[in-house]
Write a protein that binds this DNA or RNA. Structure first.
Lengths: 109, 109
DNA sequence: TATACTTAGTTACATAAAGTAAGTTAATTT
DNA sequence: AAATTAACTTACTTTATGTAACTAAGTATA
């Protein structure tokens, strides 16, 4: 009636990584610290969900929020060590994508 | 106003892999071919969504559905070559989980 | 000085995705 | 004949995401 065999750490990891947008957010931050609006524009996520995700990721210790008290204030997000440790995951996805994904031509409606 | 820098193959790959349950389904099938009800019970997904996911994954060429015409009929799902190629992805997630995930004690409500 | 713009969000509401539970079909066991 | 199992599907509910407008504080523009 319930799961048995699956490693709970693995399952929790999937619960984080497998959430919509999380992969792309982390991928972006592997490039270096970025501002809210930059992430928003680059990956095409809505502000509402980006805000939600960044808070989750911060709570998970994957992302860190930095407030630079300049005028105007600058806020940047970057990866913690735990977050950086996800690099091989993203790389393996990239490799799989290179080897196996077809680019579908988008038909513009 | 829109994304620029992200590799479209990578993005499509993430759109598949990052869907809820997909990771766990593939992880299960890495163990070998399995029946619908086994996957359902093992990972705790609802039948409705499992049915949906398996169809998607089949369409993507990641999973293959096999009908064994015994009585009663037996249906099994397994990974294609493309699906098997996701093994390193799941392994890298497992490694990250081992290194960085804390097990939260579940408080039963 | 007033108006408009930018950043980093939040809020309210609409739509899409996932969960729940019951139903279906065909065959099998009791 | 009634109950059970497998592999789904259907109808309905709850949750997640998208959209758009709003806020606050500062900056630039007319």
């Amino acid at each position: 009636m319930a799961d048995q065999t699956i490693c709970p750490k693995f399952e929790s990891a999937l619960n984080i990584i497998n959430k919509r947008w999380t992969g792309l957010i982390i991928f972006q931050l592997l490039e270096g610290a970025q501002r809210f609006s930059t992430i928003e524009a680059t990956i095409g996520i809505s502000g509402r969900v980006l805000s939600e995700r960044l808070k989750d990721l911060e709570k998970q210790g994957i992302v860190k929020r930095h407030v630079y008290d300049e005028t105007p204030v600058r806020i940047e997000y970057d990866l913690t060590e735990k977050g950086m440790a996800l690099k091989p995951v993203l790389e393996s996805i990239q490799e799989w994508a290179d080897g196996w994904m077809e680019i579908e031509k988008q038909s513009f409606v």
